[in-house]
Design a protein around this nucleic acid. Structure first.
Lengths: 245, 245
DNA sequence: CGGACTTATTGGTATAGACCAGTATCGCCG
DNA sequence: CGGCGATACTGGTCTATACCAATAAGTCCG
């Protein structure tokens, strides 16, 4: 985000001083992306603060996306975010690679479902119409960054489940079924990651995230994919470039 | 976001049970948007939990955008978010009104500045070129939801500062200078609101937000506006609808 | 050397108490 | 009735401590 310097800002509040201290160490390069921070108890000793105060400072940095935690393992310096243009969908794998990062995909489930009221409306089908739902987890450099669930119309892509979804779904739809995307409707909302999503990303529930809902249409206006993505907030930066209509 | 039900999810963790309890009261309509929650100490008595645990639950709901706080006044149920399409820029005032909400704008400052390296690049001008910077705070139904700082090329809009910016800047640029927007480049990133922004929104530093950077071009490709917006995360939902290129 | 078990370490949750600094309210006074 | 000041209340910060659960490291054994 062409980022501007954040002012030093030590109000005298202990947890903010602590925050600034760690942030400075990271900015100075003493701590590199992926490095582990000293343990909370060590920071406690170093600073003379109570552990709760130390944690308050760490939570600040976490909210800012500067550090993240691995449950009961430690706090780590965040790697830079991936840049993502949801309107310019050429596939997770290719754009992550284009940024010099290592993408991987895991299929969590792939199964036939029937349209509920919402899905029926999205796909312009009667309730109960056959659909496929695919849930995947995607990683960058080995860190889980998003979970998604994609719904595809079974009528447009019969027998879809015989494929492996660890590769690009978009290219399967294109090469095997002649479906290509002409228009996307995207909705995004900062959210908290809870329940399934937090679990799948191995995050503490309640951590901030970004919810992205994408509906992809082909040239005939048919819905090709209906996709819900939940990103960890520190892993992604959205970039959209469009003409005004 | 066509929202799905969130599972009840009481793990037995006290602060999550507490979270679910309040969430249920809100979902049931016992607590309406804008209502004040019982005080932390009252919740403490009601639930028998320690105050820290009560607060942990409240922080969860805050991260989810369900409630928000007014410093030392109390916790309140969040009003629904505003839907915002940054590529479809017809002005804050009009689209907020179109959603049946009451928008207001406050000008925090409006002054001439000179281009630093970044701005020089954005505007394709030499460093030191004259620009105008306008900082505004915008409200929905009386609640401050975003601060923005807009930079405009002084060469394209001479004497801009004689206008009042409590109304639409877009329409000033159009009617007074014949500048209209043909293309937007938008970048968005979940962020933490700190320093100036948190202060301007009267928020505790570190609360989640959404940073939006918009560069608007006219038909000749000249930069009309360069805009940084910082939204409180619970106040906005992004919606983008575009053709694939 | 490889695998299984034990142990130390780490973050996660929870309690109880204290004091501070703004906010809101109420009652007094002019 | 209107303005002002005292006061109760509210969230904000901070300390200290305790125990739990998952991870990571170290050790022992086959």
């Amino acid at each position: 985000m062409t980022h501007v310097v954040s002012a030093p800002k030590s109000d005298g509040l202990h947890y903010l001083v602590m925050r600034d201290d760690i942030a400075a160490r990271i900015a100075a390069g003493d701590l590199q992306p992926g490095d582990r921070l000293p343990s909370e108890r060590r920071l406690q000793d170093e600073t003379g603060l109570a552990r709760g105060t130390v944690r308050a400072g760490l939570f600040q940095l976490e909210a800012e996306g500067v550090i993240y935690r691995r449950d009961r393992s430690g706090w780590y310096v965040s790697p830079p975010p991936v840049i993502y243009d949801p309107t310019r969908w050429d596939g997770f794998m290719s754009y992550v690679e284009a940024q010099g990062r290592r993408p991987t995909t895991e299929t969590l489930s792939a199964e036939p479902v029937t349209a509920d009221a919402l899905l029926a409306q999205v796909f312009s089908r009667p309730p109960g119409a056959p659909l496929f739902m695919i849930r995947r987890r995607r990683h960058v450099d080995g860190r889980a960054v998003l979970v998604e669930s994609i719904v595809v119309d079974a009528a447009l892509a019969p027998d879809l489940l015989r494929f492996s979804f660890d590769q690009s779904l978009t290219s399967i739809l294109k090469s095997e079924y002649g479906l290509s995307v002409a228009r996307n409707a995207v909705r995004m909302q900062p959210c908290a990651l809870t329940g399934h999503e937090a679990e799948a990303l191995r995050l503490k529930p309640g951590l901030p995230g970004l919810a992205v809902q994408r509906t992809s249409y082909d040239a005939q206006g048919r819905v090709v994919e209906f996709d819900h993505e939940h990103w960890r907030h520190d892993a992604v930066r959205i970039s959209v470039d469009t003409r005004v209509r």
